[in-house]
Amino acid sequence: MSENATSEEIIICQDVCKWFGEFQALKDCSLRVRAQEVVVIIGPSGSGKSTFIRCINRLEEHQAGDIIVDGIPLTRDVRNIEQIRSETGMVFQQFNLFPHLTVLENITLAPIQVRKMHKDEAHETAMALLNRVGIPEQADKHPGQLSGGQQQRVAIARSLAMSPKIMLFDEPTSALDPEMIKEVLDVMQELAETGMTMLVVTHEMGFAREVADRIVFMDAGEIMEVGTPEHFFTNAQHERTKLFLSQIL
């Protein structure tokens, strides 16, 4: 567990609601995340976990409630949206690496195009990040030539290249073969130890227990319960939380 969570609230969600047509995907979700905190979101599939974190960087638009990221209110103002996106990195279940670019180009694309960084500098940063995730030797390959675990580590490096303050993980290990899950979780754990603010949707209870500062349980679009790992795994309050935990543990 990272002990370095500060008191500054970097993500504030207040009564966030989201509808897909008639279907309400998020019902009055409220959550405050402090800087450097690691929050893991669990819950059955279709419970709105992914939708919730996708609202935070505006991949989905919330229709009611407030979201404030690092003091910037997330509204229709495109300048705010741009700022929030530049402070948040996102890692997807399907990696979503750019298949037409090499690993190195995947990582340097946004720093060069968005941050207007010089190519040499971007390369240096990218190589440092590839070292950090443990695959510097893959720099000149294309994503299609890498294993799933390697691709996901590149995806993490790609997000980190924009030096975000917050990292959002949307089921980062769900598309991986079992033997590759650990290499990705190790990178995430190392990232948590450096004090990154992380919001992680996952089914990896081991990771939740070891790394999370708090665990959020969602069901049917609602946040049912929030608490520390000890509280969660030993003393869950809610019936549905207990049922869910009994099914997966």
């Binding site: 960087n57 991949l59 741009e82 996106r85 530049s86 948040t88 990195g89 996102m90 997807f92 979503n96 690496l97 750019f98 694309l109 946004a110 195009q113 968005v114 995806a155 790609r158 997000s159 924009m162």
Partner: peptide, 10 residues
């Protein structure tokens, strides 16, 4: 692909 690019700030 579009989502990843958007999330990166492009």
């Amino acid at each position: 692909q579009r989502e990843a690019a958007t999330a990166l700030g492009l």
